[in-house]
Design a protein around this nucleic acid. Structure first.
Ligand code: DGT
Ligand code: MG
Ligand code: MG
Ligand code: ZN
Length: 572
DNA sequence: GCCGTTTTCGGCCCGACTGTTTTCAGTCG
């Protein structure tokens, strides 16, 4: 069973318990659900390795829940859960997915009207049966119908890159309002999570009313969930929700900290404040009535005895402990990349020529790029064979002779065959400056076969970089089944560099794998995988993921000047 | 149900917005 499925079970248990009005226990199950989702390694593997004891190392998992996980792994079922379901046979997850419907509402709806699933609720609401219920009314009935409509449209989460420009635009509009002193993007967008559930914006002002009016009347707004003097929530045409909070200047840091999250990070900070006899909320850090910090995030962290924690790390994944000990990594910075090692051109499926890509890269401040067009077994892209590669090398030599301010490296994105051999001969690979290897076919091999296949490719002395190591495409294609620990180990052994493909729907390696690679001392590169000049700026999304993976500048080879970069590749 | 260099029992983050509310619960961030 996948971690996410396991998490769903515990989340459902939390909801059932909440329905019964039980205090705190639901939080415990919810916390575990979240922890399981954040876990990259399948829980079953973890259990195989160390049994109950290993499970209890998961934060929030104690003896009782560890035993429940064990039961699920061993039998595929959980008695406790089955009994809760039998007792109240309703689709809690579906029903509570409706905006405004929580556990308590589900209970009332089931007990009075026998509502078991969303379609029952829709019928009841249409028939006007909701309004008469205790603690429900006509408005609630309408809200439920609206909520069901939204649920059916089902927008879900958005890849960060797909909504980032719109979010920045809205941020800019708010900034230009005369009442607004400052604006900041917060939430998962500021943490640069690979997908975001909504956009969270913070504004500083002492006159929030007109800002909220402006915000709810923006042309993209299709629905207003709620509107107050400090918080307003809307839905946009594209299905994305935007939350806006407005606070006074003296609370800017506290509000930014609160609104950046993550929730777990916030809770952890607030507990530290409690232990110190303080109170932390979005308005400041307080000793009694007195605000002792709040204008900047730095001062809040300092007052809590912590180093400043960069937003990308705020996932409660060990950053608070590290900040307490003064051991936070010095993360790779935006703008520190000097090169881009994966670029496609019109020689295969790219939209721009070598020159155009080079000129744009130079304009963006890069010092070198590698041209890495696809190779022959990707027939549909017109992939290069050895002959075409040689021709392209000559073309690059010629451009390098005249082009100033940037160096073009000769490369290729070489296919890894099913058996782990490469589809370009070694004699040709030898002539290239940078060889990227990648899986583009036979995605459905067993974990063992796929792992062996990739490891064999990495053992090729010419294979410098493993491109997009897991092959996932966000919300489109699952990663192929591969043992990433083995890949990381092999990378370390062979000196093969692992890529962070910054293309917004790849982001591969992803944050958690980056962190493992960094811990193992594996070298990384961050590449745009650009297929047109507009894509080179995607590099910054890759830097963001690298930061989320705790990567330092020294972990990222293409922060180095060209000569040192080349020395970092395995055959140099 | 979990958790602990002040605790193995007694706490568990804290606040905004809405609706039906006579004093606040539910839901959400
Ligand atoms: N203290 C506290 N803060 C919360 C809680 N829920 C949310 N927040 C804060 C932290 C979140 O990052 C921020 C924005 O809430 P969101 O629901 O939009 O979450 P976030 O943006 O982190 O993730 P998302 O991608 O939108 O699902 O509000 C909570 O229960 N307690
Ligand atoms: Mg958010
Ligand atoms: Mg939000
Ligand atoms: Zn590729």
């Amino acid at each position: 069973m996948r971690n996410t499925e396991l998490a769903q079970i515990f989340r459902e248990i939390a909801l059932y318990l909440e329905m019964q009005g039980i205090q705190f226990k639901p939080r415990a199950y919810e916390k575990v659900a979240y922890a399981l989702e954040a876990l990259e390694e399948p829980v079953a593997e973890l259990y195989k390795r160390g049994g109950i004891k290993e499970l209890r190392n998961i934060p929030g998992v104690g003896q009782a829940i560890a035993e429940k996980i064990e039961e699920i792994i061993q039998t595929g079922k959980l008695k406790y859960y089955e009994e809760l379901k039998k007792e109240t046979p309703v689709d809690v997850r579906g029903l509570t997915a409706i905006e405004g419907v929580g556990a308590k509402s589900v209970k009332v709806l089931y007990e009075t009207l026998g509502v078991k699933e969303v379609s029952d609720l829709e019928q009841a609401a249409r028939a006007g049966k909701i309004r008469g219920l205790p603690h429900f009314g006509e408005k609630m009935e309408q809200k439920i119908l609206k909520g069901i409509e939204f649920l059916k449209q089902g927008s879900g989460r958005f890849p960060l890159g797909s909504v980032f420009p719109l979010i920045l635009e809205i941020e800019g509009r708010l900034r230009s309002l005369p009442e607004v002193e400052a604006v900041a993007v917060a939430g998962s967008v500021r943490r640069r999570k690979e997908t975001v559930g909504d956009a969270d914006l913070l504004a500083i002002s002492s006159k929030p009313g007109s800002i909220m009016d402006y915000f709810t009347s923006m042309p993209e707004v299709t629905h207003v969930y709620g509107k107050g003097m400090t918080k307003t929530m809307v839905k946009l045409k594209n299905g994305m929700d935007v939350d806006l909070r407005v606070v006074p200047g003296e609370s800017f840091g506290a509000a930014l900290s609160y609104f950046t999250g993550s929730k777990d990070h916030n809770v952890a900070l607030r507990r530290i404040a409690q232990e110190k006899g303080l109170k932390l909320n979005e308005y400041g850090l307080f000793r009694g009535e007195r605000r002792i910090a709040g204008e900047t995030e730095e001062e809040i962290y300092r007052a809590l005895g912590l180093l400043y924690i960069p937003p990308e790390l705020r996932e409660n994944q060990g950053e608070i402990e590290a900040a307490k000990k003064g051991e936070l990594p010095d993360l790779v910075e935006y703008g520190e990349l000097r090169g881009d090692l994966q670029i496609q051109t019109t020689w295969t499926d790219g939209a721009n020529s070598i020159e155009e890509m080079a000129e744009e890269a130079r304009r963006l401040g890069l010092e070198y790029i590698a041209i890495t067009d696809h190779t022959k077994s990707l027939a549909m892209t017109g992939g290069s064979d050895e002959k075409k590669l040689l021709k392209q090398m000559e073309a690059i030599d010629k451009i390098n002779r005249t082009l100033k301010g940037i160096r073009i490296l000769k490369g290729a994105e070489v296919n890894i065959n099913k058996d782990g051999t490469l589809d370009i001969k070694d004699e040709a690979l030898k002539k290239l400056d940078v060889v990227g290897v990648a899986v583009h076919s036979h995605f459905n091999l067993s974990r063992k076969e796929m792992t062996e296949r990739i490891i064999r490719a990495m053992r090729n002395p010419h294979a410098d970089i493993l491109f997009h190591p897991t092959g996932r495409v966000i919300q489109k294609r699952e990663p192929y089944d591969v043992d990433m620990d083995a890949i990381i180990k092999t990378a370390k052994e062979t000196g093969t560099v692992l890529e962070v493909d910054a293309y917004p729907d790849r982001l591969d390696l992803k944050d958690e794998h980056i962190r493992k690679a960094v811990e193992a001392g594996v070298k990384l590169v961050i590449d745009s995988d650009a297929h047109s000049v507009n894509h080179i700026r995607f590099l910054e999304f890759g830097v963001a993921q690298a930061r989320r993976g705790w990567a330092k500048k020294s972990d990222v080879l293409n922060t180095r000047p060209l000569r040192e970069f080349l020395k970092g590749l395995k055959d140099n």
